[in-house]
Design a protein around this nucleic acid. Structure first.
Lengths: 204, 204
DNA sequence: TGACTTATACCGACTAGTCGGTCTATTTTC
DNA sequence: GAAAATAGACCGACTAGTCGGTATAAGTCA
C-alpha cells in the first residue's frame, strides 16, 4: 500500500474519532497525515470514498487485534466469551477518542445521508459480532441452554452495550462509566449461563 | 416562547437526528422551520448556542413524555423499572430518526470539540438516568439486594444499552435489532432481582 | 385620544471565509 | 522513460454569521 494512502487512513481513524466525520475536513486529514491534497484525491476519489475505506480498514485493524488477543486459548467457549468481554474492558484506557469506535461514530452521521458509509459501518459491526456469536453458540451447546433468545441477538447485544458505553464515556468524559457498563454485561452473561454461581454473590 | 424560536427547536430535533449536528446547516434549520435566517440569529447567537438550547429542549420534551407514561403507577418499584423498559421498547417504532436520541447523536460529534454541547448532552442523559436510578434504588431495598454494583451504575447501564441499540438500528436499518437488545436488558434486570423466576424459562 | 418612543420579533441580501474537488507540474519508482 | 505517486495553487459552491431594515405591540406623555 502506498505510503500516503496508509498515512491518510491512520489519520482518518484518529481525526474522525475525535471530531466526527462531517466536521473532519479533507485538509484536516492531509495535515494530520503530512500529505498534500493532491495525494488525497489520487488515492480516494472523494471524501466519502475515504470514509468507506476507513471503515474497511477499521475492520482489518480491529480484526487483527482481536484475533491476536489471548482469550481464544480457553477451551470452554463461555470462558472465551467472558475473556472477550474482559479484553474489551481492558481496552477502555487512555483518552476517549483512543478507545472509542470509528464505525459507531460514523454510522450515526451517515446512516440516513450516505448508504455506502452506513453499509461499511454496518458490515464492520455485524462482522465483529459474528465472531462473538460463534463462541456464544458453542457455549449454549456446551451448557445445554435452550433459551428464548438467539446467540446472534446476544452477540449484537454485546456490541450495543459497548457502543452505548462509548457514548456514556463521551458524555461524561469518564472511561470508568463505560467500564461499569461492561461489568454489567459480563454479569448478565454469567447469569444466563451459570445462574446459580452468582446468585449468592449478588443477592442476599 | 416566540413562534420562530419554537419552530427552530422542533426543526433541530428532526434535522439533527437525521443528518447529525455538523452536517446540519443553519439554512437547513431555517428551511425546515419555515423561518428566515435573520430570525435564527435573533434567537440564537450561534449555531452552537442552538445546539445547547436543543439539548435542553430535548430534556424538557422527553422529561414530559416519561413523566406522563403509565408505568409510574405500579406500587412495586421493580415493576416501575420493568415498565419503563417496556415503554422504551414500545417507542422503537417508525423510522430510525424518529425514535433515536438527539443528545446521544450530538455528543458523539461534540464531546471533544465543543464542551458546552457535550455538557448539555451529558446533563440530559445523566438527568434521565437519575430518574431510573430512584426506582432501581427503591427496588434494591424492597428486594433486599446487597449487590456489588450500584443503582447508579445500573441506571447508566440502561442508558448505555438504549444508546447502543440506537447505533445498531442505524447500522442495520432495523428497529427489531434494537428491540432485541432492550429485551436482553429486561432479562438482565429480572435476573438480578428475581434470579429464580427466569432460570427455569431460559435454562434446561 | 393621538403622536412619539421603546422593545421585540422577523426578514433576506450580503460578506468573509471555508470546503470538497480539480488541474497541472514535479518527483519517485521500476 | 513510462507510470505511479506526490505536490500545492486554484476554483466554484457553500456556510456561519452580519447588517440594515420592516412590522407589531406596548408604554408614555401631551
Amino acid at each position: 500500500m502506498p505510503a500516503a494512502r496508509q498515512k491518510l487512513l491512520n489519520a482518518a481513524l484518529a481525526v474522525i474519532r475525535t471530531k466526527g466525520y462531517s466536521a473532519t475536513t479533507v485538509d484536516d486529514l492531509c495535515a494530520a497525515a503530512g500529505v498534500a491534497k493532491g495525494s488525497f484525491f489520487h488515492h480516494f476519489k472523494s471524501k466519502e470514498a475515504l470514509a468507506v475505506a476507513a471503515a474497511d480498514y477499521w475492520s482489518e485493524i480491529t480484526g487483527a487485534l482481536f484475533a491476536a488477543a489471548p482469550y481464544h486459548t480457553h477451551a470452554d467457549p463461555l470462558d472465551r466469551v467472558l475473556g472477550y468481554i474482559d479484553f474489551r474492558k481492558s481496552l477502555l484506557a487512555g483518552k476517549v477518542p483512543e478507545f472509542t469506535c470509528l464505525v459507531g461514530t460514523m454510522v450515526q452521521e451517515a446512516f440516513e445521508t450516505c448508504p455506502p458509509i452506513r453499509d461499511a459501518c454496518g458490515a464492520s459491526i455485524t462482522g465483529h459480532a459474528a465472531k462473538v456469536e460463534a463462541d456464544l453458540a458453542a457455549a449454549m451447546t456446551r451448557y445445554g441452554l435452550r433459551p428464548d433468545w438467539t446467540a446472534e441477538s446476544l452477540a449484537l447485544h454485546t456490541q450495543a452495550v459497548l457502543q452505548g458505553a462509548f457514548i456514556l464515556a463521551k458524555a461524561t468524559g469518564s472511561a470508568a462509566v463505560a467500564a461499569a457498563s461492561v461489568d454489567h454485561l459480563r454479569r448478565y452473561i454469567e447469569l444466563l449461563f451459570k445462574p446459580t454461581s452468582l446468585k449468592k454473590r449478588g443477592h442476599t
